[in-house]
Design a protein around this nucleic acid. Structure first.
Lengths: 130, 130
DNA sequence: GCCCTTTGATTACAAGTGTAGTCATATTGT
DNA sequence: ACAATATGACTACACTTGTAATCAAAGGGC
């Protein structure tokens, strides 16, 4: 049942549905219109393809459909992060963060957040120990 | 001169050239043969496309070409990390790392590395201050 | 000198993607 | 009731990607 790959354009549609769901195509198209200049037909094509790919479920609502994600943003994001990290950073988080830091720089807040995350992770590690 | 998108298969070719360059197609194909079962024709197609995309330069060496990357792995990796981070994590490093941590878990070494990176970043911040 | 191999150039071709258009039907406003 | 509109199903079509094959010229082995 391995989920097929979601394309760039399709991902934009997923984002709208991850923010709220279920929604009919018309609403999705309206929200997307802010960023992309897509004809509603285009949005509908993308929706159909996502349904084919088992990324969305549909429920009938009168003569139209309501769409909802079948994969969570969490899972998708995790997979994408994993893939990138494996592919370009040998699966290590540090070089990835280092690359992000370079050029853009991490804010003080980012650094504080990361430190907190790390201390939480260490605490977990200890718990698993015994 | 915006660099065109490098595809998955093309990226594998880039990896070989990032490890060593310049190289002729035959060498590249031989090295790739370890992972992918690609006909040398396939490798040559990918090389041509990468040249078209301005991702590789060529220099004549007798009757063949030597290929070399026009973008560094560093830059490419940074851009990819940036894109993913912007697209799925609102540009923040922390949720990205958190996602990586979840499910796979960061090793003690990863955590130590990250802590070192963070303290280096803080030191830099101080230096910039004055 | 001639055949086999290597190489670049060109071409192939199906699947996936971006971006719609057409057609038939159901719905709604007047 | 009828025209304009919305909607789903299907179709279109150029471009990209994965994965080669063909063709012609150039070199290399014997």
């Amino acid at each position: 049942m391995a989920m097929k790959k979601i394309s760039q354009a399709e991902l934009s549609v997923m984002e709208v549905l991850w923010m709220q769901s279920p929604q009919p195509a018309s609403d999705i198209a309206r929200k997307l219109a802010a960023q992309k200049r897509w004809n509603i037909k285009t949005v509908k094509t993308l929706l159909s393809r996502l349904v084919d790919k088992n990324a969305l479920s549909t429920t009938k609502d009168g003569r139209r459909f309501l769409y909802a994600p079948l994969i969570s943003r969490e899972i998708y994001a995790r997979k994408a992060a994993r893939t990138l990290s494996d592919r370009l950073f040998g699966g290590r988080a540090t070089p990835l963060v280092a690359h992000l830091a370079e050029g853009r720089g991490l804010s003080d807040e980012d650094i504080a957040d990361l430190e907190k995350l790390l201390s939480d992770l260490k605490r977990e590690g200890l718990n698993n120990e015994r």
